[in-house]
Design a protein around this nucleic acid. Structure first.
Lengths: 408, 408
DNA sequence: GCCAAATAGTTTATGCTCTGAACTATAAGG
DNA sequence: CCTTATAGTTCAGAGCATAAACTATTTGGC
């Protein structure tokens, strides 16, 4: 039996026919099959009918809706061994969503097609620390406007967007509760200015969560943890191919799992959190870079650290090794609470992987009783575009899961 | 926007009309409102119509279905200030589900009405350790048969049942992957023999999960962790008023969160797990009861330990204090992964609460940065009936969420 | 005691969405 | 050129919910 919650057909629907819910669900279902790029090529109405169990008549009607809303286009013909060829369907290549990222030392904006490919991408270096929400958002919206115009020139229609921020987002996705590295607290950025007049709005999300979402499209596992190494350590948890954010939006914060009960105080107010050992700042301090001139910039710090590691500097090596050990420990504990089967490393943890890996795998295996073969700890393939792709992906999902919002 | 997954209307439905899904959902919706015992008394069709947004006509038709399937009965009249009185509806008091529990030293069987009240309850002391699956199940099915006959005499119709076992259950709910304290491994108990010929079957679940579910009906929090102190330490995690079991069915195992990286080996294959410090056996050992004659029985061990604590025995006090400290630590870490807001203690941890509490709250507060006011750590109100009630509750949910399975 | 007002529940006509089967359209292969 | 196979459309029909009219039952004022 498929276990489902009591479906919210009615709650909040004012007077509308509830049969509409079936239509909505089936529109999403069909759109989902069109979005899947199967190895056998694009799909026709008949194939979708076979795949979903809906009759050909229903699929035809649903596809008609999707085409008239602009989400889907007919491409070419799809000849099976015999008989009339099917009409191949695809997500409209001229519709896209915008992805944006605010980080400590840059702003990034990109355009992602409905199919998920990055069409345009621009990163601008900028010191966003302590510049205030208003000014950062003004700079970002200017950058978005430029990108949107460029997209329009290419004939690309931007439907909506997503913004990733390195901080905690409230459950409603409206407020940046805290982003210590940006100096934001309870900030309520005006998201509409990023894409004035777009049919769907702009959604806000945490950077690690966004990166996890982007990573998911490249993984077959349905449950995994993305560990984002930034100044601190963020986590994005995916359960059943869905982002798991919890009631307050703060789920998966592996950076604040306790790894050393007698360790140092953490910015979060706790003590001995993973972040106090495996955050970039923490590693740099433990490696003896305190007061080093490179500490003024994050990327500089990391490259100096890399230099030391390559030279075989004992203090740096042991700092990173300890970070790996504690990361393994925290992940093993976390996997008992939400049993994920895969770990993906991002940020500085991805860069430091060669020096982390042995101690990480050792402790992960020991404390998880051997649940993680080494192939189940990967380095992110997306690098710095992850957050941006994920933020766009979040906007994209709101289209794919609710295509009726665009119906004409 | 309500975020929902693509609904599984179609998948697995063979040729049936998909409109039926709407009916199913609405049947469950209406049944859910009838099940809610509001302070203002039982509900009428009109009130349910107002509550759900469905028209009176629809509600009437749905209620008719529920009555003819035997789940709902009309009781009395419900006079509002003026006008024709409404007909009060209630869950049929003569329909029930069976709850059963296999534990180390007893078998328990009970009958729970659709409304969730325990109608009958019998516990038989029995040493189930190493007696083998077959013989334990034979004894249990005999006990179930007796209870079922007694229920029938009272005019109570048993629709289905649930069985709670102190061990890991696979995601499909068919196999006891391992129950170390029973000596079971990959056991596949024949659940049908417990209730031969009942319209719904018997579902299998983990004891801590069942207890968590039972606890939920007494809590307003939607996200909480139930910590079950048995020989080891089990955990039941509730997220959004739903049991959260994860892809493999092992979520919420707080007993195997690492609290001491250099601690002792755990039966699970890990090291320094909470269970090695806060399990009943672990506490008894640390309190100096190794080789003590009372160790032959679990309840004896616990009462001896309680005696020592009341006497102020230093070793016992410090063992329990350490258990509390580590429990707080593990819970604080767990709450970063799945942000629950309430902790409920059961089993020996409930009994030891007076001696645990200070160290537990201290560490929980310190490591969670103050997220848990002391009112958010409670002692289970259900005691030993929790698992039984929860197992029955699971069966009950399958009725309440899928009333169409009983439609005539 | 009777009638207006209020509330509960049922009946009936209508619309939406899916299904199933018949029908049209288009290709491969002998 | 005809048979076979596959794709997609058309159309009648069934299931479910809605809206509005209708019946049923009570309170309370006169």
């Amino acid at each position: 039996m498929v276990m489902t919650a009591v479906p919210p057909y009615i709650q909040g629907v004012t007077g509308a026919g509830h049969m509409e819910a079936v239509r909505r669900g089936n529109l999403a279902l069909v759109l989902g099959r069109i979005a899947e790029t199967s190895p056998a090529g694009r799909r026709s109405r008949a194939q979708i009918s076979a795949l979903t169990g809906l009759t050909k008549a229903s699929v035809s009607s649903l596809v008609l809706d999707l085409i008239s809303s602009g989400l889907v286009t007919e491409v070419g013909l799809n000849q099976q061994s015999r008989g009339r060829p099917g009409v191949e369907l695809e997500l409209n290549p001229n519709k896209a969503v915008l992805g944006a990222e605010i980080n400590v030392d840059y702003l990034a904006v990109g355009v992602v097609s409905l199919a998920g490919t990055l069409l345009m991408h621009e990163v601008r270096e900028r010191d966003n620390r302590s510049d205030g929400v208003e000014r950062v958002m003004a700079a970002l919206s200017q950058q978005c406007a430029v990108t949107a115009v460029a997209a329009e020139k290419k004939g690309i229609d931007v439907l909506g967007g997503g913004l990733a921020v390195p901080g905690l987002i409230d459950a409603a996705g409206q407020v940046v509760v805290s982003a210590p590295n940006l100096g934001w607290k309870n900030a309520r950025p005006d998201l509409r200015v990023l894409l004035p007049g777009s049919p769907l709005g702009v959604v806000l999300c945490n950077e690690a969560n966004a990166a996890a979402l982007a990573e998911m499209d490249h993984q077959s596992d349905t449950d995994f943890m993305f560990v984002s190494g930034e100044v601190g350590v963020g986590g994005g948890l995916v359960v059943g191919r869905e982002l798991f954010t919890g009631a307050d939006g703060h789920a998966g914060e592996v950076g604040h799992v306790v790894v050393d009960p007698y360790g140092s105080d953490c910015l979060c107010g706790g003590r001995g959190c993973l972040e106090t050992v495996a955050g970039q700042d923490a590693i740099a301090d433990a490696a003896g870079l305190t007061g080093h001139p490179a500490r003024s910039s994050r990327s500089l710090t990391l490259s100096v650290l890399l230099g030391l590691l390559k030279e075989g500097d004992a203090r740096a090596l042991s700092a990173v090794e300890r970070a790996g050990f504690c990361l393994g420990l925290a992940l093993a504990s976390s996997a008992r609470i939400v049993p994920f089967t895969l770990v993906v490393l991002g940020g500085h943890l991805a860069v430091l992987d060669p020096w982390l890996r042995i101690s990480l795998m050792d402790s992960l295996q020991r404390y998880s009783a051997g649940r993680f073969p080494s192939g189940n700890v990967l380095v992110s393939a997306l690098g710095s575009t992850g957050a941006l792709l994920g933020a766009a992906g979040l906007a994209l999902r709101s289209v794919l899961e609710a295509p009726h919002t665009l119906r004409r």
